[in-house]
Amino acid sequence: MSAVELSPLHRPQDRLRRRRVFNRGMEALAWLAAAIAVFFLGVVVWSVAQRGWSQLNLDFLTKSQVQFEPAVPQGLANAFAGSLVLVGLATAMALPFGILIAVYVNEFAPRPIRSAIGLTLDVLAGVPAIVIGFFVYGLIVVAHGQSAYAGAFALAVIMLPFVYRATVEVLALVPNSLREAGLGVGAPRWRTTLGIVLPQTIGGVLTGTTLAVARVAGETAPLLFTCSLAPNGIHWNPSGAIQSVPVAVFELSDSAEPSDHARAWAAALVLILFILVASLTARWLATRSKRKIMRAGR
């Protein structure tokens, strides 16, 4: 008599074996799905890097575009500067609005209004970027012409739901005991929100903003209508149209000149690297701030 016979666990059982096989199969499928996702990202990054790497030098980052002069050493400094202005302006527009809406919804709004606003912004997040570009075209560009203001406004509309969502989520994490503590010493609600609740959310808001910045930095469609007819050279004045990285990629890839194509790839590579760094920063900020809030609400 051996131990194997005594213990039913060691006896081969049909059902147990079937379960094990099923489990293995599902694990393999899940693994495959993850591998496919990583594979496609890898292919995109690799092909962009391979084609753009050769152009990625100091000139590329510091010199501006010179159209129809392929022999002159040139870069996309004007597009980088323009993107900086556009995204900076868009953030300045979307951030205060997003935070204020989130504060209103989470701290003050009655329940029906709360869900109505949430739904509205979720829908807005799903509106195609080109539709938003067209909307801003009708709203501003038709009357006032293209400008970085118009482009930044279009980008801000795209950013708004991201900033809102991120802020609302961290606000919901702030424990009620902290709000009660503030009210308990006789502070009005707005003081409690401003002095106690909001400081807890800075990390989360930064995370959401960083992700939103990464998202709109690569947006082309809304800029085509609103901020694409840019003069040569570096411009910082937002009242006129200025060049931006995604629009430059779009235009260069349409060119007949092979060196333009290479520069388009290089610009795309810079954009991807920027988004990578921004996402990593966002993650780091998110884990840090969540830990901080959890400790406060213990």
Binding site: S177, G184, V185
Partner: peptide, 26 residues
């Protein structure tokens, strides 16, 4: 009419600011 709650819920601020915050607000 002040209140002390079931679980200690100090503000995530310094010890001094925990006491001073209410004073400043009022």
């Amino acid at each position: 009419i002040g209140m002390v709650f079931q679980r200690p819920n100090p503000f995530p601020k310094s010890i001094h600011d925990n006491v001073a915050w209410g004073l400043k607000v009022l």
